[in-house]
Design a protein around this nucleic acid. Structure first.
Length: 253
DNA sequence: CGTTTTTGACCGGCGC
DNA sequence: GCGCCGGTCAAAAACG
């Protein structure tokens, strides 16, 4: 099985796009919320050589407002999406996951990553600076020894939905509307750039994401989301609040 | 002072 | 069984 985590980044991207369900995001215009120092370029689907979608996306819901009002009240339109055939449950999960980045600078390729797997490269002994990952050497801390054993039983759980973005940005961290806390950083094989690990700061939310730059094109950031948020996106709700207020106001008549 | 980031160590899976 | 590697933990440092 191709190594999705640590191998060549191009091979990784190719595997992601070729071997797994995906939906691609083809934004029509840059969002207004793009950060000042984020300069995003839009990559084309043809350039990425994605296969054709399995089926057309579901029809959009009818507008709730007069088109003129809608145009005045709503932010720039969400990107169009091409989606594979899935159950409605999968759709909910997929779309919720996609909502993890509604405010992110557009211009990204979104792919579903394979389920978590053992992803070691075999045999290769490439020279990278992954020194921190060395096995248990002579040094030990009493506290860590005390917590060893059942302390880290949460790893390698059942597979959760994972989706990878490719974003061309000078910023590693995209403003996706959620708050994240970094809990680790690792150097990975065949890449000069480390991979960063983030967890959603919401108390009950267990969504994680990994951020890494492509070795071959360091202007591209690969963001892999794992899990589905179980709470609303703060910034999305913030953006929607005026619209909801307007809807409430208009519903009085 | 509370929160977030950094960073070294540990754990578990897998290939050899 | 050993070593490599990705993922995670948690103490210390940095930050606002």
């Amino acid at each position: 099985m191709e190594n999705i985590q640590g191998g060549d980044d191009e091979a990784r991207a190719a595997t992601l796009s070729a071997g797994f369900p995906y939906f691609a995001v083809a934004p029509t215009s840059p969002p207004a919320s793009t950060s000042d120092d984020q300069q995003i370029q839009h990559s084309s689907l043809a350039e990425l050589q994605l296969p054709p979608p399995c089926n057309p996306p579901p029809p959009p819901p009818p507008p709730l407002l007069d088109p003129d009002q809608l145009a005045a009240a709503t932010p720039p339109p969400l990107p169009t999406m091409m989606l594979p055939a899935m159950s409605s449950l999968d759709w909910q999960s997929l779309l919720q996951t996609y909502l993890a980045a509604p405010l992110a600078p557009a211009g990204h390729q979104l792919m579903q990553a394979p389920p978590p797997q053992a992803d070691q490269n075999s045999g290769e002994n490439d020279d990278d600076d992954d020194q921190a990952a060395g096995g248990s050497s002579g040094c030990n801390k009493d506290k860590q020894l005390a917590k060893s054993g059942a302390g880290r039983s949460g790893r390698k759980k059942a597979s959760r939905p994972r989706f990878a973005f490719q974003t061309r940005s000078v910023n590693d961290i995209l403003d996706d509307g959620y708050r994240w806390r970094k809990y680790g950083q690792k150097a990975v094989k065949n890449s000069t750039h480390p991979r960063s690990y983030y967890r959603c700061t919401h108390h009950t939310c267990n969504v994680k994401k990994q951020v890494q730059r492509l070795a071959k094109d360091t202007s591209i950031v690969v963001t892999t989301y794992e899990g589905v948020h179980n709470h609303p996106c703060e910034k999305l709700m913030e953006a929607l609040t005026p619209i909801l207020r307007q809807l409430q106001f208009l519903s009085q008549f």
